[in-house]
């Protein structure tokens, strides 16, 4: 195929919060931008997310969390990904991530942290720019 392959993105909601307006808007915007997007739905365990990333052959994994449990749950998602050897993925996140936690989140391997008020254009550009360097 001469066509550029569509970027494969998994949008996931780890933890228990049901606020997925942001996750759905981002999923929809990335899809409208020509990417192949899978949204997991709410209340996903780290294992469920990692399994979905593996099965769907995702290059990009975006996590959304608004309950404040990101510092506990993000590392567990990353560990679950590593367990399945899905480590070469572009990670980004959104939701309510307090400014003070951003360094820790970046340290975990998230290349982008997108809070409330982010333009979906910025997220599309971010994914387009960084996804090609990831193999999965």
């Amino acid at each position: 195929m001469a066509d550029e392959q569509a970027i494969r993105v998994l949008i996931a909601k780890p933890g228990l919060d049901g606020h997925d307006r942001g996750a759905k808007v981002v999923a929809r915007a990335l899809r409208d931008a020509g990417m192949e997007v899978i949204y997991t739905g709410i209340r996903q365990t780290p294992d469920m997310i990692a399994e979905a990333a593996l099965q769907e052959d995702a290059q990009v994994v975006g996590l959304s969390i608004l309950s404040g449990a990101h510092l506990e749950l993000f590392p567990r998602v990353i560990a679950a990904l590593e367990e399945r050897e899905v480590s070469d993925v572009l990670l980004f996140c959104g939701g309510i991530i307090p400014e003070a936690d951003i360094p820790a989140v970046e340290e975990m391997g998230f290349r982008g942290v997108f809070g409330p008020g982010t333009s979906t254009q910025d997220i599309i550009e971010f994914v387009r720019e960084h996804a090609p360097t990831y193999a999965n």
Binding site: G15, L16, S67, G68, A69, L71, E72, L73, R76
Partner: peptide, 8 residues
């Protein structure tokens, strides 16, 4: 529920 106790 790890990580969610007493949060919201």
């Amino acid at each position: 529920v790890t990580g969610e106790v007493g949060k919201v």
